[in-house]
Design a protein around this nucleic acid. Structure first.
Lengths: 141, 141
DNA sequence: TATTGTTATACTCTATAACTATA
DNA sequence: TATAGTTATAGAGTATAACAATA
């Protein structure tokens, strides 16, 4: 029965997920940022500004929240709002030099594999990668 | 290099994790509960009461928060506070009949494997289970 | 003295609704 | 009229600090 096996796999993954669920807030705290603030920084590419609207979509929350989150990032001099040439309604958000540097450190910190993964033997890691790649590509979302 | 492989695996897992990160709040919302409220219900075994202190440890947040979370669950008649026979300082939290029923529905809902996992072939699932089991047992936490 | 749990306070995230300014 | 973003408001989570009751 593939159903049972899938449940079992999901249970294990869920366990792993729950053990790592404190990781994001933890990393954010190291930089004295909230989780959403951290997330916004990660979503922004250095150099290119993005309209508020895009951040709203990526964060999946109401637009009014993003105003506040960006306000606080701006107060910390990590991002700045600029005008958009084509449409005067939209405001572009861009990383400051300081924001670029902070973002790089955050991304590096997040990319460190946690202990349960780092401790696996090489052949397990190879198999895990190929399975996960299949899982992520074969499904619609 | 096992380091590189581990990073790659973590990157894929992180991707899967981020795609599922809306799942918990979503399920919670179906029951008109917040995420921590949902989490508390899942942590409680039907029948046996647990001291507030244990919930604090499991949630990993400050004790003062748990007071509020349990307050709101109690207002919804999902849990109730009772006295502890041995130590009059501690308050036990116990699921009400209604809480037991709600918790069962939440757990069932959470256990449904998400699409990327459900869609994997049987041999991938078997391999995934054994690798994850190794990952979760060999590491300290 | 130490521990359990609560209250008070302050900050952030969250959605809803009403608003401004553009298009 | 519709869209981008803001403000106002209210509810929930978070930590810190101070406190009562009990051990």
């Amino acid at each position: 029965m593939p159903k049972t096996r899938a449940c079992e796999a999901w249970e294990l993954l869920f366990d792993l997920l729950m053990r790592q669920r404190t990781r994001l807030p933890q990393v954010a705290a190291e930089f004295e940022l909230s989780e959403p603030q951290c997330h916004v920084l990660r979503l922004m590419e250095p150099g290119a500004g993005v309209p508020m609207r895009r951040l709203v979509e990526r964060l999946g929350c109401d637009a009014s929240n993003v105003t506040g989150i960006v306000d606080r990032l701006e107060a910390r001099l990590l991002v700045e709002r600029t005008a958009c040439a084509h449409d005067r309604r939209v405001r572009m958000v861009r990383l400051t030099p300081r924001g670029v540097e902070t973002r790089a450190r955050i991304v590096a910190r997040m990319n460190e594999p946690p202990e349960p993964i780092a401790g696996l033997p090489a052949d397990d890691l190879a198999a895990l990668c190929s399975i996960l790649r299949r899982a992520l590509t074969t499904s619609g979302r």
